[in-house]
């Protein structure tokens, strides 16, 4: 029993250390958002906020175009996340449950798209989008985000479907469901966790993307949040209070989504990866 006690103590120490290590920078971001401007650069630093203020939140929401950025980000990440999830689910199922020629070629292609530096794709992609009048358009940004997240999500979903017993699929077809019916009525409901994981992954990726947002969007009315946050770094000045307040606001939708999906999530990400 003594050994178990030591293990227990060890475990709790570990948990506390991880909590401190991971939470400290986030804590710093949070309290900075609530500090008045003069306290932000106090030396020595204030680890506990002396005067709590909401002025940065008020300034960022009412004094800048932040509400517009926020709406644009919701629109872009929501739509792009949904498109990615749907396309990846269909493709992942096809790759997991069917035998056909070019299958390994397609799998190779999916991994290969991840290996070429995205940075150099900006100019050719921009040219293409300009020809289709998709520059400075949220539609363009949505399609780009969807496309760039699909390869990883397809691999994720494929692993998921591969995990489901083959017999289920076959018996459903014999019962007269047909191939699509088997997918739609049997396999899909079983893969809810995978869908949840994929959706949250695709949402977060689109929510936090900066490079394509800067390159493709010009008008203030179409900018997403990430550009809004980057704009607080000016040539000679960083508006720390506003930036941290903005960052805290930016976290809210993700936590809402997390809270909604968490029960599926942990089972989700991994099973996909196993076979990915």
């Amino acid at each position: 029993m003594k050994r178990a006690n030591y293990l227990q103590i060890f475990r709790w120490c570990g948990l506390v250390i991880f909590l401190l290590m991971i939470a400290a920078p986030i804590y710093w971001l949070f309290i900075t958002a609530f500090k008045p401007e003069i306290d932000i650069f106090a030396n020595p630093p204030q680890y506990l906020p002396g005067n709590i203020t909401f002025e940065h939140f008020i300034d960022v929401w009412f004094g800048t175009s932040f509400p517009v950025f926020f709406r644009n980000s919701l629109l872009v990440a929501g739509t792009a996340g949904s498109i990615t999830t749907i396309a990846a689910t269909l493709a992942g199922y096809a790759l997991a449950k069917f035998q056909f020629r070019l299958k390994s070629t397609i799998l190779f292609l999916l991994i290969a798209t991840q290996m070429f530096p995205i940075l150099l794709l900006v100019v050719p992609l921009f040219t293409q989008l300009a020809a289709w009048k998709l520059v400075n358009s949220l539609t363009g940004l949505i399609l780009v985000y969807a496309a760039f997240n699909i390869p990883f999500c397809v691999l994720l979903m494929r692993g998921f479907f591969a995990d489901l017993p083959k017999e289920l699929d076959e018996s459903a077809q014999i019962d007269g469901c047909g191939q699509f019916g088997a997918f739609w009525r049997i396999m899909l409901p079983l893969s809810l966790p995978g869908l949840a994981a994929t959706l949250i992954f695709a949402f977060i990726s689109a929510w936090n993307e900066l490079l394509f947002a800067v390159m493709l969007i010009n008008s203030d009315s179409k900018k997403p949040l990430t550009i809004g946050l980057a704009s607080f770094i000016e040539k000679y000045n960083i508006s720390w209070g506003l930036m941290c307040a903005g960052a805290v606001i930016a976290l809210i939708p993700i936590f809402v989504l997390f809270a909604y999906i968490l029960r599926y999530l942990t089972a989700g990400l991994v099973a996909g990866a196993v076979k990915g």
Partner: peptide, 20 residues
């Protein structure tokens, strides 16, 4: 069936990643 299911994903990848 697999062709139809793969089409949306592959189309997006081809246009927005492979071509550039």
């Amino acid at each position: 069936m697999p062709v139809l299911m793969l089409a949306p994903a592959l189309l997006l990848i081809a246009v927005f990643i492979l071509y550039p």
